[in-house]
Amino acid sequence: MKTNDLIIQTTTKVVFFIIFLFSIHIFFAGHYTPGGGFVGGLVMSSAIVLLMLAFDLKTVQDMLPVNYTVITAIGLIISLLTAAGSIFFNVPFFTHVYDYFNLPLLGETSIHTAMFFDTGVYLVVVGVTMNIIQMIGGDE
């Protein structure tokens, strides 16, 4: 997948960050409007895939030197701990709580434990998808 298309590469650099921000937005918005961890993670991965298509695998790996297996593991642990956290408060496994906070700049916001769980999902989806793509694309 070696390409040297200047137009694509230049556009991609800009578009990547737009998609990246979009994925963050979609993730946070997920509790109230369409979106969430799965979609956010997938959008994020598709952004990276776009990078890979525009440049090539090796370059992207140099740009984003992340081990996706580790990302997957971290995501899984976050989800599991969020779910398990409730047992320390003497409520059943997987009980979520939420509350409203008045944060500076953002105004009144709600913070959910469910969001932490969704963060885990997000990370796992990114990790898994990228791992698969990288493995298949990189296998000679």
Binding site: G30, H31, Y32, T33, P34, G35, G36, G37, F38, H96, Y98, S110, H112, A114, M115, F117, D118, V121
Partner: peptide, 12 residues
């Protein structure tokens, strides 16, 4: 559950 997107709340 304090959410608006039912599908997502079901999931998480």
């Amino acid at each position: 559950a304090g959410g608006g997107n039912i599908v997502n709340v079901i999931l998480v």
